[in-house]
Design a protein around this nucleic acid. Structure first.
Length: 190
DNA sequence: CGATTTTGACCAGCGC
DNA sequence: GCGCTGGTCAAAATCG
């Protein structure tokens, strides 16, 4: 199952993959929303649109996402993430962070947005270097960090910080999926 | 030649 | 206050 499945294309007609994703939890210590098993569902090499990605992920089982200010969907004034029975409110888009873990040979996956790399750092918590990106769209302050899983370097951990205030520059949202045996190295996240 | 990446330096936060 | 650590800056190098 691990033989380069990320290029095996299974176009998903429905971006709201909700029930197919296992679950999401909050990281207790840094308030990070973690989508544990998205590694079962691999991203398109054509890109994944940001808000659609969030919405698809927000449709994870037991997880819903809503914008409290419906009049301003592109730059909502607040965000609510429901994860199981817990609801986390984010005051600003800058507060909003989430991470997911994806099995991939590719170091950096194309999510449909244009990113500018601004740093690379070897951190003590991992033998693999962490890469820092900013959205290169003017006025958009979304950042992401990309690093390989310290316990299994065939996985890439991507952390997004903030929500884009613009549309994706490329054609969005086809999610390819290949089931793989469950393995969760972040069991401590609850 | 402009955009992007690389990489060492710098800075801020935190614990001791 | 000091040292450690993670995050960011910015000049130089590289790329398209």
């Amino acid at each position: 199952m691990d033989t380069s499945p990320q290029f095996e294309k299974f176009p998903n007609p429905n971006p709201n993959l909700g029930h197919q994703f296992p679950y999401a939890t909050h990281h207790q210590h840094n308030d990070l929303l973690y989508f544990h098993d998205i590694s079962n569902y691999l991203m398109s090499d054509e890109g994944l649109e940001g808000k659609a990605l969030l919405q698809a992920q927000g449709a994870l089982r037991n997880t819903t996402m809503s914008f409290s200010d419906e009049s301003s969907i592109s730059t909502p004034s607040a965000y609510n993430i429901k994860c199981g029975s817990k609801v986390k409110k984010y005051k600003t888009h800058k507060d909003f962070r989430f991470a997911f873990r994806t099995k991939s040979d590719l170091e950096f996956m194309d999510d449909g947005f244009k990113w500018r790399k601004y740093g690379k750092k070897v951190v003590k918590s991992s033998p693999n270097p962490r890469n820092y990106f900013k959205c290169s769209s003017g006025g958009c302050n979304v950042k992401k960090r990309v690093e390989r899983d310290r316990e299994d370097s065939s996985y890439v951990i991507t952390t997004y910080e903030g929500i884009h205030n613009h549309e994706t520059p490329t054609t969005p949202c086809v999610v390819y999926c290949t089931p793989k045996p469950h393995s969760l190295s972040h069991a401590s996240f609850m």
